[in-house]
Design a protein around this nucleic acid. Structure first.
Lengths: 143, 143
DNA sequence: AAATAATTTGGAACTATTACAAATTTATAC
DNA sequence: GTATAAATTTGTAATAGTTCCAAATTATTT
């Protein structure tokens, strides 16, 4: 990912420009795989020897607070990071473990993008996810 | 909760009848509060001195596998237990921390109750949850 | 009632995440 | 550009939820 693009993105959110932040955001903008913090950390470690796991946690937390990222709570054992901030649903495949993007059901993307009220409650975030078998794994099993 | 009712429920699922299981399922059938394992454990400890935390974990896991319970993954720091197995949505209030039941959107309860296909994927579990402010907390803040 | 099987217990291990103080890097002011 | 101040990163230790496991207990079967 173009370094200037990433720096621009950090500036948009009013964040300081540092090497780790560039690397982490860059990784997320290139790899749309809903990684865990540990996957990000391990992946970046090769080319960034001194990187600390804590920094990845800190940075992800910071970017999430800014609204640049979303954290997914699908697999109870850990958090997955989603850099696509447009509201959408997810499928966690019990076979391959991947998290696949799907369209939101029953609510428009526009509505889900901003707080709205429902039965007197203020809804600020909409989360939809499924567990099951993805198409690919179904095909493999039916062979 | 009537002891016989709880025992009957355990038998329905083909499970052995033991004191801890009766206590735990009884608690869940009486307290519809989406408790954590720890809340269940602490609550039962008073009247069940020897109870082990591990037993609560084991039992919850067992009941979940049977389909007698559902585990919710809303707050990333822990799992919440839901003994209402009819599909429904949840709101996690950022103020009071409660988890409130809401109706499912965009999919019928009947459809969500059984596996179905969507874009070639097999959907086995439907989860919908919101984060925001519950009605009660909104009213308090607007005073 | 004895033997067998299932379950529970409790302590230790594990893992994701956070806390924190020292070291380093980045931004600011001259 | 360099010195200073501020922000960030690092690494270790702490925390918390959960799982592992072998011994002890309880339930079930004979």
């Amino acid at each position: 990912m173009n370094r200037e693009t990433v720096i621009g993105r950090l500036k948009e959110y009013g964040l300081g420009i540092t090497q780790p932040r560039i690397e982490i955001l860059s990784y997320l903008m290139e790899n749309h795989v809903h990684p865990t913090v540990d996957v990000i950390y391990e992946s970046l470690l090769e080319n960034n020897p001194g990187l600390s796991r804590t920094t990845v946690y800190n940075t992800v937390q910071l970017l999430t607070k800014c609204g640049a990222l979303r954290t997914l709570c699908i697999d109870e054992s850990h958090v997955n990071i989603d850099e696509n901030t447009m509201p959408h649903a997810h499928l966690l495949c019990r076979e391959c473990g991947r998290i696949i993007d799907l369209p939101l059901k029953g609510i428009s993307v526009e509505k889900a993008s901003h707080p709205f009220t429902m039965d007197g409650n203020m809804i600020e975030e909409v989360h939809q996810y499924y567990r099951g078998l993805c198409q690919e794994c179904r095909n493999k099993q039916n062979k």
